[in-house]
Design a protein around this nucleic acid. Structure first.
Lengths: 212, 212
DNA sequence: GTGCGATCGCAAAGATCGCTGCATTAGTCC
DNA sequence: GGACTAATGCAGCGATCTTTGCGATCGCAC
């Protein structure tokens, strides 16, 4: 899911040891966060010790914990979901949304997201990774098939936002009552597509397209 | 939910000085966060100094910064929005959503929310305050008027979630292009009500009610 | 008004963090 | 294979945080 293990390969010397250190530190952050280490106890010396790396290295390469978390979040939330191609828009969106929802169900992922959000705006924005790009790709597929597609922002508002909201602010209702995850995702996708097909006529840019 | 100024109102002595200290500390946290103090620089001694209170007091009463932030967030995000009564469901929802959106536009509020989310699950959930209760109240008003109302979860998914998502993960698009805040809110509310009126018949519990 | 107990301020000690020189290792280029 | 240089390890320092014990203050009940 994470592809290769190093993310900022653009450095001047991305060779063997640097990549190993980076991977170890990233892994350490994810492990610690997953183990439920409180945000205030998650400090650079702790991360360094877990990674088997000297704390100085972490200070020099990432500077602050916020930057480190941002890097880890960006590395974690990009490229982990492959854009599906089931042959139809409904299938693509449902499959993709299910993948996203499953990702957000993971307590480790959620913990990393919380920590990143707390670290600041940059790390926060990194949590959505390339979700918009994935949506755009799915819509483009369908558009090339000649189908009518909803607005990208409509998908963000109608599918992505509810998934993230529930994951963040109502995590308790995960295994309580309520519809199964798959069913919930299908309902959300269905609603978005219903607006779209309904608004192909006049009020497309009025009721559905609610953003840039 | 505690009504008075203190969050842990169940204490043994909620009297004058304790209340003053609590208010001063809460105020200090909000002020510091509003001033853009980085999360890693927001420490208990700093808060105490700003509040004109000894750090020991803060340590003893709140223990950790996470708990303090959780208390402040809960205090901040409850009771700040009065449920409107404009005489109709559309007006009520639009007015309430606009209030919520305006609240989320405030950088201070946003920063506090970020810090709280980073502080843990409890503080995170406190950020939504009694939003669900407010929605339920609005829907109840309309129900008593005899009107058809959408599901509470439909409003959460269709209005609340998009507002929170944008505020958290795409704060940059605040004053860029795109529709005015009011227009955006109206579009979201319009969509939710469109599903509802459309689903009054058969598929109410299928397409609209996507959760418990 | 008086007594009790919770709460707060104060000062000092212990612990941890974050940073800065210097020596060493290990990629990378020729 | 050899030289060059980025990247890491190491030790130590100052600053800050966090805790602890004690006296003083203030709110509450009688």
């Amino acid at each position: 899911m994470t592809g290769s293990d190093g993310t900022e390969g653009a450095g001047t010397r991305p060779g063997g040891r640097s990549a190993r250190v980076r991977a170890a530190v990233h892994r350490a952050v994810q492990d610690l966060v997953a183990e439920g280490v409180r945000t205030e106890d998650l400090t650079i010396p702790v991360v360094a010790a877990r990674a088997g790396v000297h704390a100085t290295t972490v200070y020099r390469r990432w500077g602050s914990l916020a930057d480190l978390l941002a890097a880890v979040a960006e590395h974690r939330f990009t490229g982990d979901v492959v854009v599906p191609d089931t042959g139809g828009l409904v299938g693509d969106l449902e499959r993709w949304s299910t993948d996203v929802a499953r990702d957000l169900e993971d307590p480790d992922t959620l913990a990393l997201m919380r920590a990143s959000i707390g670290a600041g705006e940059a790390a926060s924005c990194a949590c959505t990774g390339d979700r918009r790009a994935q949506i755009a790709a799915i819509l483009d597929h369908e558009r090339r098939r000649g189908g009518d597609v909803p607005d990208e922002d409509a998908v963000v508002d109608g599918v992505l936002a509810p998934l993230y909201y529930r994951a963040l602010f109502e995590p308790f209702s995960r295994d309580d009552e309520g519809p199964a995850p798959g069913e919930r995702v299908r309902a959300l996708v269905g609603n978005v597509l219903a607006w779209a097909s309904e608004a192909t006529g006049e009020r497309r840019s009025q009721a559905v397209s609610v953003s840039p």
